[in-house]
Amino acid sequence: MSSWRIRKRLDLDRMASLDGSYVGGLDCGTTTTKAVIIDGTRRILGSCVRKSGANLLESAETALEEALSSAGLSADQVRYIVGTGFGRRSISFAHQTKTEISCHSKGCHHYYPEAITVIDIGGQDNKVVKLDSSGRKSSFKMNRKCAAGTGAFLEEMAYKLDVPVSELEGLARKSSSGTELGSFCTVFTATEVLDRIRGGEKLEDIVRGLFNSVAKRILEMDRLTGRVIISGGVVAHNPIVAEIISERANIEVEIAPHPQEMGAFGAALFAAESVAREAGEEDKLSVARR
């Protein structure tokens, strides 16, 4: 679907009233693009996760189309779209953009309406956000521009080890503690890993060591306080990361519902708020909170 067609279908003048209409969130990340469609009760009706590729706008359009299809809806039923993620400014048909920091926070607060710490491990960046009981950010930290400890790190290491990314979790679970890798840098870690292989260490111990490394990068970003919720694509496919963080910090770490789509869901929640604000009908959206 081309962007002009999306824009045309989203023409606000032709939109239905708040009741019975829908809103969407699009999270255009460095690795994957996620789309979520919700209704006025904030229920997820459809979603999609797909590779971002080189053309971010096209990925966003396709993700939206697939999310609409899974919801059994058409574009003209979607009243407002908020874009987020690395490629948010590429989503030219979005009505508004928000950072992924705010969107993951928004989404997590929806499920955990109390003071929480949100950890998001994404394709190329990690965030630790602290929210008060009203969902307002009291602080946030992003990893430095280096992608060590992110999804990109795991992908690179899987490539070096000639192991499919999807098998990392299973391998790591065969190891009881894993090896400790000393390097910060992805390139140096790759060298270190090859050295460990030559030294006869088991593959599963090395793979668990990679997840240990991801956990260490998170724990050095900020102190984890209050209820700790983790979201993002890495934990969606590798829940062992949450367990390792939990063990190492000696705290409980909970994986958020639909962690990979949490940013898109948060964006959709912002979209719902905008529609409600425009319509002066905020109260109509304040239902179905858990």
Partner: peptide
Amino acid sequence: ETTRTNIEAFVEQLEDTKEV
């Protein structure tokens, strides 16, 4: 992009703070 996102998120945080 990291810098832009950080600044944008910071202003979003300021919005939260001002609201409080």
